[in-house]
Every structure is written in C-alpha cells, then in structure tokens.
C-alpha cells in the first residue's frame, strides 16, 4: 500500500467513524434535541409529572379566547391528530395568529391543560405577498406544516 493510499484510507475511516459516532450519539438523547413536544406526544404521556416543558404546534382556527379587559388568554394547540388547551397570561408575540405555529413553555395542570409562562411564534416556511395569501385562502390550504 502506498503512503497516499494509506492517507486516503485514514481520511475515509475518520469520516465513517465520526459519522457513526454522531448518528449513535444523537440518537441517544432525543428529548434533548427536540425543542418542543407536539400535542400527540403530550397526550400520549411523554412528559412525566409536573415537569416544565415546551409544547409546539398550530394554534387551532377559532380557538383563541381573551378574557375581556385582561391579559388572560386561552387557545388550543393542535398537530392535526391531538389537541392541548393552553392558558396564558401575558404579552403575545406580534406574529401570534390562529392557524400559525407556536411554541409555549410551561406545565400541565391537573385538568390536562397547559399553563404557559412564555410563548414564542413559530413561522412556517412559506413566504408570499398578502395578495397571494388572499387568493390562496379561496382554496382550502394543505394541512401539513
């Protein structure tokens, strides 16, 4: 084997080794890398006890309610399979909308409702001018986000 072949082989071994280590290393701790749980995971009991965690999904259309003259709000987060009701008291981000993504930090109460301490808006990957969005609204939107 020539020295050059040898070095080529060591580069390949290095790459394969590091990739394998990365794959197994990253597989091990899934909850560490996922920034939030979706409603299906929460309903299935992925979160134990009264731990604080992040819940992410879509704000269900028509579910947003504000208690008059207060900052108390409630809405439903859905992943189109399961739903979790969210209670929150505070300021919402500018891009908080029904039908848009949201990530909330907080815990479940005894009724299975999510009491949020903090809410972030999650934008989807679609960008368009308002006119295009209006014309799309005529047609039913696709339900994957």
């Amino acid at each position: 084997m020539t020295p050059r072949r040898n070095r080529m082989l060591s580069v390949i071994t290095l790459l394969v080794g590091v990739s394998l280590a990365a794959v197994f290393g990253l597989r091990g701790c899934d909850d560490l890398k996922s920034y939030f749980f979706d409603p299906s995971q929460v309903v299935a009991g992925a979160v134990k006890g009264d731990q604080s965690f992040r819940l992410g999904g879509m704000v269900k259309d028509g579910s947003f309610i504000r208690v008059p003259e207060s900052l108390d709000v409630s809405f439903v987060v859905t992943d189109f399979a399961q739903e979790v009701k969210v209670l929150y008291n505070g300021l919402l981000p500018d891009l908080f909308r029904e039908g848009q993504g949201v990530v909330a930090t907080g815990k479940l109460n005894q009724y299975g409702e999510f009491v949020a301490e903090n809410i972030l808006a999650k934008h989807d990957e679609n960008y368009m001018p308002p006119e295009v969005a209006d014309s799309l609204k005529q047609k039913p939107p696709e339900t994957d986000y």
């Binding site: 890398k33 920034y35 939030f36 999650k122 990957e125 679609n126």
Partner: peptide, 13 residues
C-alpha cells in the same frame, strides 16, 4: 436539523 427534530426555526423553503 429542522427535519429530524422539532425546532423553533422553520424548515427549508
């Protein structure tokens, strides 16, 4: 990362 895990960052456009 945006496809494999739940992230706040949106996925590829």
């Amino acid at each position: 990362s945006v496809n494999w895990w739940n992230t706040l960052h949106q996925s590829a456009s």
